[in-house]
Design a protein around this nucleic acid. Structure first.
Lengths: 403, 403
DNA sequence: CTTATTAAGTCAAGTGTCTTGACTTATTAC
DNA sequence: GTAATAAGTCAAGACACTTGACTTAATAAG
């Protein structure tokens, strides 16, 4: 009876877990509602006034919240609102894309303090690693030049790149990201920066950004359809980013569409890659963004056909995401010029009927999100901040407390 | 500054939440691994031996676990394994389908102790409510006849019916479920039984059943594709059933497929309803199940064409679910005869390429699940048991503790 | 202007649950 | 037979939330 099978169980919790959760709940409440008094916090979180007082005192000592001018709200002692201190924490966000890498430094409330980018040489990680590490170091030192003690308050480095991760020979990827996807990026970045590093795909990063400072702010169920070089969906489910069993959830770009007897991945039909192909543009062109923006603003005919075709696929994608995830809202975002995203949204409507057509909806079914080449890097930075400060089941458990 | 906007915040937690979580973690560990000693539990949950001892003692007093014969495992004092006591808790599961309603009584480990069914008269809730309440009462009294004190250990009533819920005029539903979907079933059942009632769609119930006693046992990320009168997906994400913002997540049957220039919901192409139509069978026929089972077993030609056509759509559905949810496995189940599900699985293979093709997979991408007319009722009953005993984020929070 | 009422926030003691470290018990290895 | 090992208990301790009385500071009412 040599019974050495591993025992699977979820982790238990203890006082520290309780306390960690309550701290996170306070920060979350202040992020969603803006400054609140301790009495407000006590009512909203169902904790006692005393507990809230203790936690707020601690958060204030830690430099995460600060008191504001007292507010008279009728009879009774005026309340003292507390708000998040933007300089309470920082994170570095890193986007690795086909031809370029971008890094930003972001604070606790999601403001971008530093941004910087560099071209990625061809050849994948062997040539790109140094560029990336230099870029991160540069952003980090610029941040240190702007705010004091930034290093002490740096909660981590979030990296974002196109997925999927760890998939057996996707093979037909013509954009050379496969070498990056196979590369031990996490380990390299950890070793090269000494920071706590997280990795997610670009759509997940975009969703994280939308949740922190965008259209998904305060929502617990939102899907971000991200149109970039590829296309993917970032999933906010139950108030947390959903990653799936292997970090590849939401890779809708790999969904196969059947038409005319052949199957094509969505990504080949509705993505900037397909637009570049349609326009016969070199994706490595540095003036790309401005050029597309210009075309979109002018309503150029050359872009029109692509927009119309992509809108058909996107309309269906949105319908499908609504049907499967039942979110409060779908957000269309991208690392594309805003003008292009707006044209897409205009062309997509009206939406297909779906379970999202409910009586008493308050949010629109489809909303524009950030459309900005920096949104992925911002989302990448939002990852560590969310992991460090948002209420999450995992944060309560013992195995997440020490390590 | 009359500032009375509602403040949104997540609930905090306290010692009770900690304790509730740890109890649930113990029960979960025993459910997944079978009987375990306190020392094993302490290692697996990262709690101290002492804490585990206290909790196990309490669970034993509550009749949820019991000690087994001591086991000698080499040097050191023999360990005393503790296992779940099946009679520790019971739940009633109720399935409401088009022409029939089924109820089961289930124990803590998911064994069905009582099962009973009744035909549903046409006319929707106005005629059906009494039938349902009588059925529940009958199952309940039969359970009381089998086990002592069953009423005291009844944790709730789970109901399952085809979704979607609360959707504005789905209109084209030819199966008369719409009147049920609009009916305040939850309130009626609560009032009529005095039990804690939960409601979910049939696919979600099937997934809950698979997680408790089926192919998803111990998995944290699994998708159950449920082929019944309609078709839907039950989602186990992060170890919990995912319901979406409005309880309609996974309603893949409403996904529109485009072919030959027109759009058709998946449900009209791959579901038992479509099979009945294909075979020109009356779905109200009481001998339906046996007849289909017989046809499937014989490999009848009349069923073959439908199987082949449905397999195409199901293959694609599985591909899509893998792509969007990145689960550990997809489970095909149904309220269909097992022989039919097996034929479908055979016809579906080989699967389409997707992100599920990973190096080092241990689980098959597609597995057969329960195919049994009673599986939905079982899953419905599994709902309250899961809510009462599985580790869940919500169970830690203060607002779930008292009410 | 005075007093009652209301609400925010503090104080200090209390309670529940996990943790710690020493100890007991039971078995196998040498 | 003794040492080593592992399960499990005991009792004190630590931690974080709770309780209820109290203080502070404002508005409403007379």
């Amino acid at each position: 009876m040599n019974d050495s099978r591993p025992i699977r169980a979820k982790s238990g919790t203890n006082h520290e877990g309780t306390s960690a959760h309550n701290r996170r709940v306070m920060i979350d409440a202040l992020r969603i509602n803006g400054a609140l008094s301790r009495a407000d916090l006590a009512r909203a979180t169902r904790l006692t006034k005393q507990t809230v007082s203790n936690i707020i005192e601690e958060l204030e000592r830690d430099g995460l919240v600060s008191s504001q001018e007292a507010v008279r709200r009728g009879r009774g002692q005026p309340s003292t609102p507390y708000g998040l201190v933007p300089e309470g924490a920082f994170a570095i966000g890193l986007q690795i894309d086909r031809h370029v890498t971008r890094a930003v430094a972001v604070d606790l409330v999601g403001s971008v303090l530093v941004r910087d980018e560099a071209g990625l040489p061809p050849g994948g990680p062997s040539n790109g690693t140094k560029v990336i590490l230099d870029l991160v170091a540069s952003v980090r030192s610029k941040l240190a030049g702007i705010v004091q003690q930034s290093e002490k308050r740096l909660v981590g480095l979030g990296a974002a790149m196109p997925g999927p991760f760890g998939v057996a020979g996707s093979g037909d990827d013509p954009w050379m990201m496969e070498t990056w996807q196979k590369f031990p990026l996490l380990e390299t970045l950890t070793a090269g920066t000494g920071l706590d590093v997280g990795l997610q795909n670009d759509a997940a990063a975009a969703a994280t950004a939308e949740r922190m400072v965008g259209a998904a702010h305060g929502l617990d169920h939102a899907v971000c359809l991200f149109v970039g070089y590829g296309i993917g969906a970032g999933l906010i489910l139950n108030g947390e980013l959903y990653r799936g069993a292997n970090g590849n959830a939401g890779e809708i770009g790999m969904a196969l569409l059947f038409a005319d007897g052949k199957s094509t991945p969505l990504e080949h039909r509705a993505s900037l890659a397909s637009l570049y192909q349609h326009l016969s543009i070199d994706p490595a062109d540095p003036g790309l963004y401005a050029r597309i923006n210009d075309l979109a603003l002018r309503g150029d005919q050359s872009i029109h056909a692509w927009v119309e075709a992509a809108a058909v696929d996107l309309r269906w994608s949105i319908h499908l995401l609504e049907t499967l995830f039942d979110p409060q809202t779908v957000i269309l975002c991208g690392s594309a010029p805003e003008a292009l995203v707006n044209r897409l949204i205009a062309a997509i409507g009206p939406l297909l009927p779906s379970i999202a057509e409910r009586r008493g909806r308050t949010l629109p079914r489809l909303q524009p999100g950030m459309a900005d080449p920096w949104s992925v890097a911002l989302g990448a930075a939002a990852g560590p901040i969310s992991r460090a400060f948002d209420p999450r089941f995992a944060a309560i458990l013992k195995d997440s407390l020490q390590s």
